[in-house]
Design a protein around this nucleic acid. Structure first.
Lengths: 190, 190
DNA sequence: TCTCGAATCTAGCACCGCTAGCAAGTTTGC
DNA sequence: GCAAACTTGCTAGCGGTGCTAGATTCGAGA
């Protein structure tokens, strides 16, 4: 029994190690640097070990993404709590979201841009995902003005996501970002 | 002289052939199916010929993207012209934009999601790019309400882009798309 | 201590983007 | 007319990718 549990514990630790190494490597050098060979070297195991934990590279990225979503949920929550007044929540959460994407671009990519098989927008969604989305719903709800808060949250989220992605791809200049964000917040405030 | 021009013409035709084949292959099977080997086979030349026309695969994608942007500019313009009243232009252009992205996902990807080295948002931007963006500026201008039309256009564009990308990645459900778009249009209408 | 199953590794497959170097075909100069 | 020089496209191959079959090592239980 004890031996069995020890093995399971060690296995879980190694899985965590792989996820962390993947995230750190991606954040340091981008996802194109995260190859199975490189990752295996980083965790000091051979390549096939990765496949005993994850179905493939995509599954590793999905695991990293899920960690990132938990982090984001926490940061959005903190931003809401720190808002001086209810009227400031939308701006606070919006800014926190953009700041997260800016600070951790590779992680953000895995979460919301790359193809990962996380079930979004369903009751089966992982808890961190629902928590993060719930923060957006809370932020926009006071400005719903009769509209469905969930749909408004998705729309606001999409707008933030679009700003981030277009800016990252060099489609819109970074220097006016604050003004665009202000415009967006104004349009979504009622 | 005549021989020289004939050769140049043939060469230009072949370049066009490569771009078209790349676009069609991407639209039929996605960009992951567009490998240099596959593309070379499609145009019935050997692989290295591609490199005598383009610096690399990215350059081919950039050429495809530029074609797509010209198409988009034309469709946005048509949508504006067909709008029954000035008040309908924003909705018409927004819908046309989303419809384009929906109808030609791979092309849209090359244009606005993949990394291509097109100079966006500068005076040196290719004409089709400026034309497409100008249509968005025209659409939002009546609703600027004192704000900079260029920045408002970028913000509106980003919101549309975000809706498209999140929907494509399965992050938000497709079925409520029309309602989200309506919400967005309402927020950007003044 | 020995056996057997689980865990891990080595080696390799089929593919990728890209390129060096060769073999035709074409133009140019004598 | 013919050889030299240049252009053009090819074959073959490099170093990389994700992933896996099969050999090998290791440790637990009899």
């Amino acid at each position: 029994m004890s031996i069995q549990t020890r093995k399971e514990r060690e296995r879980a630790q190694r899985e965590k190690l792989i996820i962390t190494a993947a995230r750190e490597l991606a954040e340091a050098e981008g996802w194109e640097a995260v190859t199975t060979r490189r990752l295996a070297e980083e965790v000091e195991y051979s390549q096939p070990v990765l496949y005993s934990h994850f179905k493939g590279k995509d599954a590793i990225m999905t695991a990293v993404a899920l960690e990132g979503i938990a982090d984001l949920a926490e940061e959005l929550r903190a931003a809401r709590m720190a808002a001086p007044a209810p009227a400031d929540i939308l701006a606070a959460v919006g800014s926190a979201y953009v700041a997260f994407a800016d600070r951790r671009p590779a992680l953000y990519d895995a979460m919301f841009n790359q193809i990962v098989d996380l079930p979004f927008a369903t009751p089966e969604s992982p808890a961190p995902l629902r928590a993060a989305f719930d923060e957006v719903v809370r932020a926009v709800s006071p400005h719903a003005d009769g509209a469905d808060p969930g749909l408004l949250a998705e729309t606001f989220w999409a707008a933030l996501h679009g700003l981030i992605m277009l800016m990252r791809g060099g489609r819109i200049p970074r220097e006016y970002h604050d003004r665009r964000l202000a415009l967006l917040l104004a349009r979504f405030s009622r």
